[in-house]
Design a protein around this nucleic acid. Structure first.
Lengths: 110, 110
DNA sequence: GCCCATCATCGTAATTTTGCGATATCGCAT
DNA sequence: ATGCGATATCGCAAAATTACGATGATGGGC
């Protein structure tokens, strides 16, 4: 990513979060963390058809994006960051669907 | 993307949508389409610090992901797909925030 | 001490993404 | 027909992502 001038920090932040979610393995990790509240790395490794090092990399990507973070329980124990999750829900709701955009009205195909 | 065995089609689909949103220029395009309901390519080009061909590429990525589509007005006139937007809001709300996951309760840092 | 399990990081190869200029294509006015 | 404005697509180089095995690091039993 070359960090083009003229794009806002907020847009960069949003894109970073989406990009971190843009991989099926990471989608599964996030969904599982949502379901279980907290997982150790090994739980996630045995859940995915990937090598341990690869899963660890995916965890790092999610952590760097601020989507997950370590729990207090132990090293290698993760949970979702509630603030980011709320941000995502808000973005989806009012940035993408401000007032039923593209509902087949004038200018949009049905 | 190597299409690893063992990940569901739904996870792949979700990841594809997130990946398409994982670029600040595309975030801006989507936000602008949400605000304006429909844009021609040139509106988006003059809004972004990028070459016309690059913007056209970003539009293609969003279109391939099913996030935007052509309106009936003319070629090169786009709007958001309401179904995908609703899917995104739903995903964020009940997959990522099933019941206030990671609210500082046991197993999670505050 | 010494192994074992668990996890992170390094190094690498293959693939994908990104952005650009150049080059079609298409509709419309002259 | 000719030219023009608006888009899409092609080809390319640079950068990023993805996955893996190998290699550290750490903590707990024996």
């Amino acid at each position: 990513m070359k960090a083009i001038e003229g794009l806002t920090a907020e847009e960069e932040r949003a894109a970073a979060i989406f990009r971190a979610l843009g991989n099926p393995a990471r989608v599964r990790i996030v969904a599982e963390l949502a379901r279980r509240r907290a997982c150790v790395t090994n739980d996630l490794v045995s859940m995915l058809p990937l090598a341990q090092s690869t899963v660890s990399q995916h965890i790092k990507v999610l952590k760097d994006a601020g989507i997950i973070r370590g729990s207090t329980e132990a090293e290698g124990c993760y949970c979702l960051d509630p603030e980011v999750m709320r941000w995502l829900a808000t973005f989806a709701y009012d940035i993408c669907c401000p007032d039923d955009a593209c509902d087949g009205g004038p200018g949009c195909a049905p």
